[in-house]
Amino acid sequence: MSALQEIVDTQPIETTPKKYMALGNYASIVVVILLCVAPLIAKNFVIFQMTMVLIYAIAVLALNILTGGSGQFSLGQSAFYALGAYTSAILMEVGGVNYALTLPIAGGICFIAGYLFGLPALRLSGIYLALATFALATAMPQLLKLHYFEAWTGGVQGLVITKPDAPFGLPLSQDMWLYYFVLVVSMAIYVASVNLLKSRSGRAMMAIRDNEIAASAMGVDVALYKTLAFGVSAGITGVAGGLGAIAVQFVAPDSYTIQLAIALFLGMVVGGVGWLPGSIVGAAFIVFVPNIAEHFSKGLSGAVFGLILVLIIFLLPHGSRQIAYTVQGWVHKLRK
């Protein structure tokens, strides 16, 4: 209310130096081996859950690029996830396209949608941007229910998708094949994202995140990179949505409400904002913690979930990357 209040110098997103955004080589190899071996000893349902973890990890990663990379906050990721899921589902069931081919199309459509949404979003920041993206997330399920599109989307009922078999007569169950398929896609996306953030474009985005005015003074095209970040993030989320539709074998408007967007947001915070490997930790949180909470007490599952979340943010306000840094510190000490 006072004049003084107008000179607020806030830094909403923590700054992460780019060399800390990814895991080191050894750590990466260990994680990949673990992810490859894990399904061999797990039951089918657990494999399905792990597949979902990987898929959500992709979506959390996408949000991480947007928020941790370019400093824009979004509660609308569920809308792009839904768009990707429906694109894949419609192409597969109505168009008869191979499931693997639907993913790049879903990603492309979502990239365009995200880029276009990024244009008006340029005018907004912080809380105002959160509200705009929130509007998108609440509108999406309602739009999918509209009877104009019912011939394709199946309206409120949604669409049922057939699960793909392993190709070339490989002796793998459907769940196991899908797991490895998702694993390959997510690793490709992870590597591409790390490289993106290390590149000139990534540096430009981070410069905008850290100080928009300074970045534009240095010649960074702020509008271009902000909308690009939205596009890339939406595109990756779309791929995750497509994979999610294939894994769950079903799309319906009510699977993609604002709750999904909030879950993805929580995943990002728990994983560590701006730390890409944390995405998988955050995704594991999204998939497993509600189940654990339910296990403790049916009636109070919400409270247990909340308490676990509070505990995590108390102990690790910077998310799982705090653990990673600590471990890294120990390793350095041991070497010396």
Partner: peptide, 19 residues
């Protein structure tokens, strides 16, 4: 703690009170 962590705290509070 970072702003986004606070927001996660609000969401936790929401879940607890509602439940």
């Amino acid at each position: 703690a970072p702003v986004l962590t606070h927001v996660a705290g609000f969401i936790a509070l929401f879940a607890i009170i509602n439940s």
